[in-house]
Amino acid sequence: MPDRVNKAEITCTVNGETLSLKAYPMARLLDVLRQELRLTGTKEGCGEGECGACSVWIDGEIANSCLVPVLQVAGSEIKTIEGIATGEQLHAVQEAFISCGGAQCGICTPGMVMAAVNLLERTPHPSETEIRMGLAGNLCRCTGYMKIFEAVVRACQATGVKA
């Protein structure tokens, strides 16, 4: 059994709340979120950055939390699926995923929503190609993606109306 290194103290902001935690420096951000912070909305699908189920935002950019050692988020702002709705008020993308049938089994959904919201923040009115490219890092085995594309389009329309 190999020797253990010391845990590191890490301060970061998660869904707007600044917190300090102790963790092995190479622990995956995914595991720290799920196990230490009990934010289990972020899912593990592959552990190798392929499926996007573990997508979170780090300083506003989408990232696969399975590939991020927790030490690297010291001082960063993290947003997870738990931070997307405002209280009881769902984000337009979440509403659209429900109404368009963008979620089936739901396991890819948190990551897909994180990617879709991030896409719309960067590109408020994406073309179909931009939607497809923007979600290419998030694999869904249930929907064949059609209803997810529809949801993103509907969310843009909804956001447009609100603005």
């Binding site: 934010l39 289990t40 909305g41 972020t42 997870t80 699926i81 738990e82 997307i84 709705a85 769902l90 979440q94 995923f97 429900i98 979620a103 739901g106 959904t109 948190p110 929503v113």
Partner: peptide
């Protein structure tokens, strides 16, 4: 169960 799924 849509709401539970889209909110994680």
């Amino acid at each position: 169960e849509g709401r539970a799924k889209v909110t994680g």
